[in-house]
Every structure is written in C-alpha cells, then in structure tokens.
Computed example of a mutant assay.
Amino acid sequence: MSLSEQEQKTLREIEQSLLADDPKFGSSVQSGDSMGLNGGGFSLRAFAIGVVGLVMLIAGVALAQNSLWFIALSIVGFLVMFGAGIWALRGSGGNSLPSGGAGRASRSPSAAQRANSGNGFGSKMEENFRRRFEGN
C-alpha cells in the first residue's frame, strides 16, 4: 500500500527535522532517497560477485573427490562470497549515494531554521492534532 502525498510530505518533514536536530546522526544514516534505498548498481555488483563466489564454493565441494586442489577453489569461493558481503554492507564512498544525495545536505539548514522558528514541524503537527479533536 502506497502512502498518500500528504503522508509522504509529512515523512519528508520528519526526516528533515531529524537531520537538522542531529547532523552527525543524519550523516551516518543518510541515503540517496528518503526511504533509505540505495541505487541498484552497487548492490547488484556485490550480489553478482557473491553468486560467483557461491558457484566457486559449490564447484569446489562437488569436484573435491577428483583432486584435493578443488578444496582450495572452495576456500577461495567462500572468501569471494565473504568479501562481496562486506562490500555490500559497507558500501563504497562515492558509489553508494546517487546524485540526489548532495542536494539533501543543502536543504537541512533551512529545516533547522524552520525548526528553530515558531512555525516548525512540531507546531504544525500539534495544530493538526488539535484541529482533528476540536472538529469532532
């Protein structure tokens, strides 16, 4: 189920206020889009390398009866899989963020200014809450 446009706007405002309140936290969890999903290119490469490592591991185990050298192939396959997993989890500095990530940092100071003024996100939420319950 997708979110309405108002809910998406609210989530973006929450994200911006969190980034403005704690920039260190924001820089540690900031990703290319607001839902935390990376672009597909980087993770697809890591996945492909992991599959190659898995094939090497299975082939080495299956062919280990013919020669003991295939055990080395299994070990190398495991190391390739392990390296691909680490690469996927850590990400690479420049490739993990799509080009939209740079614009987000420039928006956080305006969010900080809004949060410090009386018309911040909290006051808007409080106003909406009061309007709902006064209307009923």
Rank of each mutant, 00 (worst) to 15 (best):
E13L: 02
I14T: 07
Q16W: 07
Q16C: 06
L19M: 06
D21K: 08
D22C: 07
D22L: 06
P23N: 11
P23A: 13
K24I: 09
K24C: 05
F25S: 00
G26A: 12
S27R: 12
Q30N: 01
Q30E: 04
S31Q: 01
G32L: 07
D33P: 03
D33H: 07
S34P: 05
S34H: 04
M35T: 11
M35W: 05
L37N: 02
N38L: 01
N38M: 02
G39A: 09
G39Q: 04
G40D: 10
G40Q: 08
G41A: 09
F42V: 04
L44I: 03
A46N: 09
F47L: 15
A48Q: 09
G50V: 02
G50Q: 04
V51M: 14
V51G: 07
V52A: 10
G53A: 07
L54G: 13
L54D: 05
M56Q: 08
L57G: 15
A62I: 15
A62F: 15
N66S: 12
S67G: 05
L68D: 11
L68F: 15
L68S: 12
W69H: 12
W69Y: 12
F70C: 02
F70Q: 03
F70D: 02
I71N: 08
V76M: 14
G77F: 09
G77T: 13
F78S: 10
F78A: 14
F78T: 11
F78G: 12
F78V: 10
F82V: 08
F82Q: 07
F82M: 10
G83F: 14
G83S: 15
G83T: 12
A84L: 07
G85R: 06
G85F: 04
I86K: 12
W87I: 06
A88K: 09
A88T: 03
R90N: 05
R90H: 05
N95Y: 04
N95S: 07
S96H: 10
L97R: 00
P98E: 01
S99L: 13
S99D: 07
G101W: 02
A102F: 08
A102S: 06
G103P: 11
R104F: 15
R104H: 14
S106Y: 14
R107I: 13
S108L: 15
P109R: 12
A115V: 03
G118R: 04
N119Y: 13
G120T: 05
F121P: 06
G122R: 03
M125A: 00
E126Y: 02
E127G: 00
E127T: 01
R130Q: 14
R130E: 14
R131A: 10
R132L: 10
E134M: 10
